[in-house]
């Protein structure tokens, strides 16, 4: 599934003269099976952007092209439901969005809504399968959402999105508020889904995750796209990082400081601790 935004601008201003634009002339092409990270300060347009990708918000100016669908302002998109089935969004703090009596019912709400349920498929099996993917066993099916911990609820919410088998999974700050181990487990889940062929779009403030998991990162600043490229190319560019006012992962901080002391280290690309130690040793042996 390919997604492309063409001159996309969006304003929440409902009056005729649109002044405040939350997105300004954004042009991005997202290819099939990417692991794309979206970063930028609070209020920079990240959430507005992802909602434009599946027609939850319609462009004020420009368009979003998703395969055969063209999303434009004031245009009725045929089969909008079909589009939304292809692109699943897990919003921030999805644990607050569970509303059914049991985990099973909550998971099956999406598939029912998209008419994916017929006499031939076993609903329990469908729900069990996605629970397994997020790392919960079948004993959770009959539990009430309020019996679960915060992390478990979040997993159930994600299972509910996976249940209608979207090609693209968009997750908005999925690790906020989780402890570091739970956050790593969550990230490994997205990595697994990515390996299963899904496109992952991750909105995050955790720069370590961007460097470790994403193949590409885009940066928003005040509604404008200010960077589009590889995470390493961004984080290792001191000037750019300063200009865009971006926090860099700890490993890059360590690398940059060590490069100042031992400039030869700058000839190597360091993205994790193992590489750092390996190249540090090489530099010291010279």
């Amino acid at each position: 599934m390919n997604i492309e935004t063409k001159n996309l601008s969006y304003s929440y201003d409902t009056s005729k003269k649109k002044t405040n634009f939350a997105l300004k002339d954004v042009n991005v092409k997202i290819d099939n099976q990417e692991f794309l990270a979206i970063i930028g300060p609070t209020g920079s347009g990240k959430s507005t952007f992802i909602q434009n990708l599946n027609a939850l918000l319609l462009p004020t100016i420009g368009e979003v092209v998703v395969d055969e669908y063209i999303i434009k302002n004031k245009i009725k998109i045929k089969n909008i439901k079909q589009l939304r089935k292809k692109i699943g969004i897990v919003f921030q703090f999805p644990e607050y969005q569970l509303f059914e009596e049991t985990v099973e019912k909550d998971i099956l709400f999406g598939p029912k809504n998209f008419n994916l349920v017929n006499k031939n498929n076993d609903l329990k099996e469908m729900a069990t399968k996605v629970l397994d993917i997020v790392g919960l066993n079948a004993s959770y099916l009959n539990k009430a959402p309020f019996e679960l911990s915060g992390g478990e609820k979040r997993k159930v919410a994600i299972a509910g999105i996976l249940a209608f088998e979207p090609d693209v999974l968009i997750v908005d700050e999925p690790t906020a508020g989780l402890d570091p181990i739970a956050a790593n487990n969550m990230m490994n889940l997205f990595y697994k889904l990515h390996n299963l062929g899904k496109t992952i779009i991750l909105v995050t403030h955790q720069m370590e995750h961007v460097l470790e998991y994403a193949n590409r990162v885009i940066v928003f600043n005040d509604g404008t796209l200010s960077y589009d490229g590889k995470p390493w190319d961004l984080f290792s560019n001191l000037e750019l990082v300063k200009k865009l006012n971006i926090d860099v992962p700890n490993i890059i901080k360590l690398y940059n400081l060590t490069c100042k002391k031992y400039p030869k280290l700058a000839n190597y690309k360091v993205t994790n601790i193992t590489e750092f130690i390996k190249y540090y040793k090489e530099v010291m042996a010279l």
Binding site: D179, P180, I181, N184, L254, I273, T274, F276, I277, K281
Partner: peptide, 17 residues
């Protein structure tokens, strides 16, 4: 179920090496 801080982790791996 806690993870060490970054610097502690780096130091440990350096000692291991």
């Amino acid at each position: 179920n806690l993870l060490p801080p970054f610097v502690v982790n780096v130091r440990k791996q350096m000692l291991d090496n």
